[in-house]
Write a protein that binds this DNA or RNA. Structure first.
Lengths: 217, 217
DNA sequence: AGACTGCCAACTGTCGACAGTTGACATGTT
DNA sequence: AACATGTCAACTGTCGACAGTTGGCAGTCT
């Protein structure tokens, strides 16, 4: 059924997926080094494709390259966290504004859906899975309909996930986040771009502060 | 004088610089393909480092990769230009806000310097070099002191330069841009973040509209 | 004439091997 | 003992060659 379609991704592409997963889940812990021959052998490929995969992940900020030394999983530096959240705030506030002026009905349905699932999860007493938080922000940038902003948001959120994996998971303040999310959906629903941006900024500033305190134990 | 320092960048790094230059200046025209063996031979290197260079430029948006076909210099699509400027606006408005609240005296000196040179150039009757426009925006993001935002702005501006190289250069509206720049400096000097953001948004919206008209001849 | 089929050259994807550099350990010196 | 120097294994940077895929062209059939 896929005769001409190269169903099999290139080896480099596959390696990117596998490595990204391992880095984001902390399977390859922060600070550790990626040995080319070792990993290539483990993946059953040669060093060429693996190198391309490593460079790709480095361009996404998931690895840091040191000439003649190799690739390392970056750790969490408080100063860098603040700078990263400045970028995230710039991107997601803009996304919130655009979403407020461009959202369709299906976007709103999706946003309400995610919020409802969060509430359900909260009442069940279970810990707040980051999955739901990501789903919310994902739904928002979808509503913004700005492909370049969406791509950058994806990259930044990925780096935030990496930072979180380096933290001993403090359960996120689900209640505060849920309230922020609800308020955001309301602003987007009303088409109030300015309010959406303001709420997003407050939300992210709260999340950032929380991560910084987690960093100092 | 640089005994341990690997003064010579890696071959891949050198190739990145050379290729970036050739792509941005239009020496490799939009739509054309980059033949690996041919270019590698021309640069006197092997295909390995060249491939890494190509992938790197692709991650910067300066090349588009097609599996089993190779790398192409992307052309200018009006819809994409709008989306790109949405990203640029998000980033540079945030930078303008931050600059207004963080700028030091040396930042202000630099900003005034660039504006003054623009006025001098204008009075001399010469065409407005994009160099001065880039210098202004560069000075602004320096004043913002947000490394991640700065990096992303650099990448976006690079793509704008690529778009411009694909256009038959219409001289930019220097007068309007100069006024915008002056107004921006004033807002930054006053520490008025909201105003800086507003002016930047208007400025970029103007520049974007101008590029779109240039696209339709 | 037009459409389909099978071949072919060109190019990308991948591999294994060689060369140069780095950090660490061992040895010698003050 | 602390420091400087020499040596070495491990790893990255680079290269040339092979295999698989793509798009185009010639030839054939309707």
């Amino acid at each position: 059924m896929t005769p001409p379609t190269p169903l099999h991704l290139s080896l480099a592409g596959q390696a990117v997926d596998v490595l990204r997963e391992q880095v984001l889940t902390g399977e390859i812990p922060a600070g550790s080094r990626v040995n080319e021959v070792e990993v290539a052998h483990k993946l059953g490929i040669s060093r060429g494709p693996l190198r391309e995969a490593i460079r790709h992940l480095a361009s996404e900020g998931l690895l840091t390259l040191v000439p003649h030394r190799g690739a390392f999983v970056p750790g969490a530096d408080p100063g860098d966290v603040k700078a990263l959240f400045e970028l995230r705030t710039a991107l997601e506030c803009a996304a919130a504004e655009l979403a407020a002026s461009r959202r369709t009905d299906v976007d709103l349905v999706r946003l309400h859906e995610v919020c409802a699932e969060s509430r359900r999860n909260y009442r069940s007493g279970q810990p707040f899975p980051y999955r739901l938080d990501l789903a919310f922000h994902q739904a928002l940038i979808t509503a913004a309909r700005s492909p370049h902003i969406a791509e950058q948001v994806r990259l930044v959120q990925q780096r935030v996930v990496l930072l979180r994996s380096a933290l001993e998971d403090d359960p996120p303040h689900q209640h505060a986040s849920m309230d922020d999310h609800d308020e955001l959906v309301k602003a987007v629903e009303d088409g109030d771009a300015a309010r959406a941006s303001t709420v997003m900024r407050r939300h992210l500033s709260r999340v950032c502060a929380q991560m910084l305190t987690s960093l100092n134990h």
